[in-house]
Design a protein around this nucleic acid. Structure first.
Lengths: 137, 137
DNA sequence: CTCTAAGTGTTATATTATTACATATGTAAT
DNA sequence: ATTACATATGTAATAATATAACACTTAGAG
């Protein structure tokens, strides 16, 4: 680790396809589906599903995005260090998804898990809710 | 609600397709995929994916089975009253799935959720683990 | 008995994801 | 610079998962 400036490599090492997929998810902020991403990025040169899925896989692996399993969608990670652990609320009425940032909740889950002698490598928590605006209407 | 004996209807009201799909999942105990169920029940008269999916949907709705989202599979519910809440461990090496029956864990999650002012209608928790037999080998 | 909700059977099609293979690129060691 | 290697790319084909549409049937309530 005798590097003075090579840190940029690790943070900058996204390829073109990975970059444009990440940017789209970043700008959207919402969960997006693979084929929607494909359509959106046709003009950027993405031609096949595989190109999208490969980029998505890599970004998931890097912890930069998450897959929301129950809706087959991908969303930008807005926690700094959640690794591959995920926790979401999903509105049952409008479908809106929010990543749960509440440290106490996610820590609490970890504690619960430890107390119950489960050795977890990662987890995915999907909480179905009625969101605020849907509750009103 | 002026019924004296109509309760039998509710507990017995599975149709033939729902029944054979439930039985298969019951006997298996493992998570099964829709198209595997279809293949397995061809001889019982199931001919199309839709017949399987309709039965599965209904059984999920009744709380008799659960869908494990991240592996697109369905498994018999072995809790008596988990409603549509689910909690599973999934072995990352061998794929084995177990429903978490630990009341303290699931109650704990509920408490955490309440403490954090989330109104949850249901949840799906997927914990990825290395199961005992895989840990040894 | 009739009405209605729920389920059935079937065909077609939509959506989501992977396999296979040939080529290209970035990085590190020589 | 050149090789070697791991990783990524491009493309076509296909697999796996799930739903739409429609005509018909059945079970239970009144």
């Amino acid at each position: 680790m005798s590097s003075t400036h090579t840190h940029s490599k690790k943070s900058q090492s996204l390829t073109k396809n990975q970059r444009i997929v990440l940017d789209l998810l970043q700008n959207s902020g919402e969960p997006l589906k693979a084929y929607f991403i494909l359509d959106s990025l046709k003009k950027e040169g993405l031609n096949s599903p595989l190109q999208v899925y490969r980029a998505l896989d890599k970004l998931v692996e890097l912890g930069k995005i998450h897959k929301i399993e129950s809706i087959n969608s991908f969303i930008i990670c807005n926690n700094s260090n959640c690794a591959s652990n995920t926790a979401f609320t999903i509105c049952e009425r409008c479908g809106k998804v929010k990543e749960i940032k509440n440290k106490y909740l996610t820590d609490g889950v970890c504690d619960l898990v430890k107390d119950n002698q489960l050795e977890i490598t990662r987890y995915n928590l999907e909480f179905y809710v009625l969101c605020k605006s849907c509750k009103i209407n």
